[in-house]
Design a binder for these strands. Structure first.
Lengths: 192, 192
DNA sequence: GCATACGGAATGAATGTTCATTCCGCAACG
DNA sequence: CGTTGCGGAATGAACATTCATTCCGTATGC
């Protein structure tokens, strides 16, 4: 494994269990199987590591969600697709998903990291706004609706984590009905 | 203001903006208007401060939500009451609400702090389970349903915070329809 | 094909800084 | 005066970062 990847993987693990502030850089190095100084060959410092980590995964998440969306389908179907990808991503990369969440606010994140985050939010809000115009999603500030559904998924993954259980493969099935009904206008709600 | 309260208030502010790990104790002291040593007269140490802070506010939240619930009302009405109190609490104490969220996972929280948190979760899940038996809430693990609705509220408050805006007084009105529809069984959904 | 020399990547002990905590002297009250 | 509560400089540990050194793969000369 390339050293920079080894470093990022080790950092992900440790930042998640110890929190960023309480993780010593030398410990990251040890876990990554490199010397402490090596980290500074690949990153400008500890903050550089968090930001690289954040951007790497946020971009991966954005790609996983957006890539190959067929925008011509009905809203409920597109939403289902997005939701499944989101859940798939969280299940496949639970530590990374939790990391993105926990560090959303971090004062050490730079403009680049924040930018990626808001781009994704905005493009989701744009989609919702379309659907509102088409009458399939209920009224309300689209950004807040996005925040509310997405927050729900975050809450569920956190609950599993607190419980010490892995995310189940049918996470999407368990949560999609609620998620869609939170968004849908009355006539578009799911019956099942 | 009593010194211990001043210390907790200062810590709340700083932990929220700088994160726990990066907040120096002497800075908390300065902000609280006390000497650095004084903190150690009131708390066993920095961890003692976070835990006192967490417990203080989690208890306040629990009290705000549960106190004086009339369990004989229909589910939708009880839920509305709870949701309004929750939103009221978040609006009245935005920093504390955010703090409780951000530090839910903190490795520095002790058993006492975690205990309060899970008690509240469990009592909410119990309520939901009752409603499921009565047919007003859809099927599914009640703990996960709680996590999903509550996560939604957290997401919304976070969105406002990211935006730099205060939480609006009508937060509950903006979010309750979605929240209830996420939970409700088909026949109990809101039309409005 | 072998020996030698070179460059840059990697290392980890050393450095200076930052921080949680302590402790001693002062002040306020009785 | 004694006692109690407080302040903030002093302390020592832990940390992020640096840098003199080692190490290794490749090139060069024989």
């Amino acid at each position: 494994m390339p050293k920079d990847t080894a470093i990022l993987d080790a950092a992900l693990d440790l930042f998640e269990t110890l929190s960023y502030g309480s993780t010593p850089v030398p410990l990251v190095a040890e876990r990554a199987g490199v010397g402490a100084g090596t980290i500074y060959r690949y990153f400008p410092g500890k903050e550089g590591v968090v930001n690289a980590l954040y951007q790497r995964w946020k971009q991966a998440l954005a790609a996983a969600v957006v890539d190959g969306l067929d925008r011509s389908q009905p809203a409920a179907l597109i939403f289902e697709g997005i939701w499944r990808r989101l859940c798939g991503f969280a299940t496949a990369n639970p530590a990374a998903f939790a990391f993105l969440e926990t560090h959303h606010h971090g004062p050490y994140l730079d403009a680049g990291s924040r930018g990626i985050a808001t781009d994704l939010d905005r493009s989701m809000a744009g989609l919702l706004a379309e659907w509102q115009r088409a009458g399939s999603v209920r009224a309300g500030d689209p950004q807040l609706l996005v925040a509310q559904v997405y927050g729900g998924l975050v809450g569920v993954t956190r609950a599993y984590r607190d419980r010490g259980t892995e995310l189940p493969p049918d996470l999407a099935d368990q949560t999609i009905e609620g998620a869609w009904n939170l968004l849908a206008s009355p006539s578009n709600r799911r019956r099942s």
